[in-house]
């Protein structure tokens, strides 16, 4: 045990002292909230990188796509490792198209529907990949304050019990316990506020990218169906 807390348990209001004097439940809540905060920020950073990169790559891919390059060439250059959702969408659609053609299909009747289905599935998968773990942000954002509040309530309960035991209500006796208890709420808020803010921001961002993907899918399927119609 920390020797300082043994000497002056009431006066130790440092961060470590606040943590160390707390009840075991409050300690667990503090640790949990700290870990939640770490996790939230990890997700925030990762998503920031992921969404930014995705947006840039999609921009680049669209540029290439509309530059008049032949689709076959584009498919050949992109298909080994599609780097962004749009490319993945493109590759999935092209693969379906080629499979039908190169398999020597006799009828192109159901091809358009198949392509659209494939693209839908791909979009769903890609959007899911983009918004994976955003739910963690939402959970932490909504439940973090409550968890912190639980720690506070518990800490205040124990500090009131301590008051009752010591029969002394001077502020010097009460204050450390309450400070320690409020520390839990502070941690909860520290975890929850960025989680909520970034959750909202990322949900909007993911929706925007999903819409962009769907728009691209529609355009691409229009192109493909035009090709199909020309060949039949």
């Amino acid at each position: 045990m920390n020797p300082e807390t043994l000497i002056a348990p009431a006066a130790d209001v440092t961060l470590w002292g606040l943590f160390w004097q707390a009840h075991i439940l409050v300690k667990a809540i503090m640790i949990g909230l700290t870990l939640a905060s770490v996790w939230v920020w990890a997700i925030v950073i990762d998503k920031w990188i992921l969404l930014g990169r995705t947006k840039r790559q999609m921009d680049r891919f669209e540029e290439v796509f509309w530059s008049g390059q032949s689709l076959e060439e584009l498919y050949r250059s992109v298909s080994p490792r599609p780097s962004n959702p749009m490319a993945t969408l493109f590759v999935a659609a092209m693969r379906e198209w080629k499979r039908t053609y190169e398999g020597g299909a006799r009828s192109l009747a159901g091809l358009t529907e198949r392509i659209e289905k494939v693209m839908d599935v791909t979009i769903a998968r890609e959007v899911d990949r983009l918004e994976r773990q955003l739910l963690v942000l939402a959970s932490v954002g909504s439940s973090g304050p409550f968890i912190g509040l639980l720690g506070t309530v518990w800490g205040i309960m124990t500090s009131f019990q301590a008051i009752a035991a010591s029969k002394n209500t001077s502020l010097a006796v009460v204050a450390p316990g309450i400070a320690e208890a409020l520390f839990a709420t502070a941690l909860g808020l520290v975890a929850a506020i960025p989680a909520t803010i970034f959750y909202n921001k990322y949900v909007i961002e993911v929706n925007r990218q999903a819409q962009r993907l769907e728009g691209f899918a529609d355009e691409f399927s229009a192109i493909l169906s035009r090709q199909i119609d020309e060949r039949t």
Binding site: V38, A42, D46
Partner: peptide, 26 residues
């Protein structure tokens, strides 16, 4: 996930360490 957890953990350790030093309640 890697860069995120690394940066986040490092940042939290930094903040907590600073807090341990600087959160001297006057």
């Amino acid at each position: 996930m890697r860069p995120g957890i690394t940066i986040s953990g490092f940042g939290h350790a930094l903040v907590l360490g600073w807090g341990l030093v600087a959160f001297a309640v006057q």
